[in-house]
Design a binder for these strands. Structure first.
Length: 271
DNA sequence: CGTGTGCCCTGACAGC
DNA sequence: TGCTGTCAGGGCACAC
């Protein structure tokens, strides 16, 4: 269930085992996920040393000493299994080091694997059009104001647009809008100044809280099973149809569809 | 251009 | 038990 916090948690978990290590073996079990695997994937990655791992939006990056970076996306159902005790039908790609094995498992196969020249990552079309990262100070009230200006589209959909902010998904958009007390159907261009000012910290805080939960879950999972696990957190609105708003304002969480996906919100405090 | 729709794929779950 | 329908955290191609 990968959104930004899960990707960040996954990258951190992989980094502990992969950074500085040499890839001794690469196994490809099928030719593609959403897109074909790079034809030279095995050749380039076999024997490569991993320099560092990082994240851009919901993509994980494995930088190697071959001037190339393996860029993975976990789609809807992807995860890396570290030292899996048994093979899984959906382990599509396996990387091995001297001490560990890393299986990219993705039942729905909405994920992707690309091999990009490290020096040209910023120009990679999928990255070039992206907005700022929601963490780390790039994302400002002024940026959102400019990005939303004149847009009639609902703010929920604006925030899912990776050109506006890179890495927000359905869960965290719902959660951030609740925190900022903004109605998800409000047109982007009509969001008020005070609402925008609340939105930036709301986004940052909900992501940071999830990442710290993910970190603790990861520590647990890294022990006995050796698998990466996704954080389990208590959402304020996501999936809480019919339950009381956590602000105790008498509101009941409601669900409706926007752009083919579900939105949850509190009609009492989100305006 | 901005905006809306449908599809890629498998699995989990509810209801019968 | 097994069938059927619905839904799922993403991204993209395509139509207007």
């Amino acid at each position: 269930m990968p959104e930004l916090p899960e990707v960040e948690t996954t990258v951190r978990g992989l980094a502990r085992f992969l950074e500085g290590e040499r890839i001794t073996r690469v196994t490809v079990n099928r030719p593609d996920l959403r897109r074909p695997f790079p034809p030279d994937l095995v050749q380039v990655m076999t024997g490569a040393r991993v320099i560092a791992l990082s994240r851009r939006a919901k993509y994980g990056l494995i930088h190697t000493d071959r001037a190339r970076t393996l860029v993975f996306h976990l789609g809807m159902s992807g995860r890396w299994r570290i030292d899996p005790p048994a093979p899984d039908t959906h382990d599509h790609l396996m990387l091995e080091t001297a001490d560990h094995r890393f299986a990219l498992c993705d039942p729905r196969r909405f994920g992707s694997v690309d091999l990009i020249e490290t020096g040209a990552l910023a120009a990679w079309p999928r990255f070039a059009a992206m907005g700022p990262e929601p963490l780390g100070g790039e994302l400002t009230t002024e940026h959102l104001k400019a990005a939303f200006s004149g847009r009639k589209q609902a703010i929920k959909l604006c925030l899912l647009d990776q050109r506006v902010v890179a890495g927000l998904g359905n869960i965290y958009v719902c959660e951030a809008l609740w925190r900022a007390r903004i109605h998800p159907r409000k047109p982007g261009g009509k969001v008020t100044g005070p609402q925008l000012a609340r939105l930036v910290p709301a986004i940052r805080e909900v992501l940071e809280a999830s990442i710290s939960d993910g970190g603790s879950t990861l520590r647990d999972y890294a022990g006995p099973t050796g698998e990466l696990g996704y954080f389990a957190t208590r959402f304020d609105v996501y999936g809480r149809t019919g339950q009381a708003c956590r602000r105790d304002d008498g509101g009941t969480i409601r669900r409706f569809a926007q752009g083919g996906r579900s939105t949850w919100f509190c009609p009492k405090c989100q305006r």
